[in-house]
Nucleic acid binder design. Structure first.
Lengths: 194, 194
DNA sequence: GTCTATATCGAGATAGAC
DNA sequence: GTCTATCTCGATATAGAC
């Protein structure tokens, strides 16, 4: 198997993914990616058939990365409640990037929704992986009703925080909201007295 | 005063604003706007000096529109609690557009954050108008602490709902979340028993 | 004021040498 | 596999006729 070519392909995907996140997909050119990776523009077309093709590869790689991360969490934390807290804590761990560029999943979906519905469907799968995992954790806790809705609600809360943090360039807001959301998680989901 | 030119200018701003919302700013060309308004491409530069200039005009017009809307609400609803509910209800009233294109303010800020910080600052003023109005309503209710944070929290919740509704193309989610958010508004802000 | 014609640039994509 | 050179297209923007 072409190890050298395969390695380059991975480097392109990594660089493109980062640039798509920081600058947006449409706003990132082959030039940008080429100079980041250190190759020529023409060389792309040996590994990818179009720019869309690179985006698809980026999305696939991200999905694999998300699945790997969640599997790691499953090992690291035995308590599903702890895992849910860890999900919210992503905001805190990535607060600098979120302040500058927003959420990598959310901002990409927002961009794609403006002009390409077929790729949006693919990008949305990143959310679906998170959602299904959240549903699984809720069921493990013993929540039996509305697990899907609660998972979607959590994603929505996290996305709102990321979006507003980015738009207002306000890291403090993120920190306060994370605290509040984790409190809500404890009060309404993990220790329901009603 | 050049009435004919001024009227055309307003038509351009209206058409551009709609297209920027539906297709994104970068993804909308002069061609698109020209054919929507029914003028030639060259004619733009008599009324605007650049594409950025059109965007600034769109933002200014939107800000004026938001202020007018809020002033209308102030007249229509005497109860500040009712006004806060009405703010959340924007989601419901615009559910079709939000499902297709997201929030006009939020998605624009998300796009601009990727490549132009100076215009983002301007676009963000749309949020600030809402935020300041929300703070005013909270104070009228008698809330004295954390009015700024609560206002930001409300914006964040609304943005999260709009973003996820758009990304999942899920109008039902929007409807459920609006219900839940209005319930939260009643329980935690309007009738605090604690 | 509005138009047509054009300049200039950078994008994605291709051809073919090495 | 990777490169250089080039094609084609559509974008913003400008010049100048009407």
């Amino acid at each position: 198997m072409g190890n050298k070519g395969e390695a380059l392909r991975q480097r392109v995907i990594a660089a493109a993914g980062e640039l798509f996140y920081q600058q947006g997909y449409e706003n990132t050119s082959f030039r940008d990616i080429a100079s980041a990776v250190g190759i020529s523009r023409g060389n792309f077309y040996y590994h990818f058939k179009s720019k869309d093709d690179i985006l698809h590869a980026v999305i696939d790689t991200r999905i694999a990365g998300i699945k790997a991360t969640l599997a790691e969490w499953d090992k690291k934390f035995t308590d599903p409640g702890q895992r849910l807290h860890h999900y919210v804590d992503i905001l805190l761990h990535n607060q600098d990037n979120i302040t500058s560029y927003g959420c990598p999943v959310g901002s990409l979906c927002t961009e794609l929704a403006k002009y390409d519905h077929s790729i949006l469907t693919d990008a949305n799968k990143m959310f679906v992986v998170f959602r299904d995992w959240l549903v699984a954790q809720l069921k493990l806790i013993g929540v039996n009703n509305n697990t899907h809705r609660i998972a979607m609600h959590l994603i929505s809360r996290v996305q709102g925080i990321a979006m507003v943090t980015n738009a207002f360039d306000d890291k403090l807001f993120l920190q306060q909201e994370v605290k509040q959301l984790k409190q809500w998680l404890d009060d309404e989901i993990l220790k329901p007295s009603h």
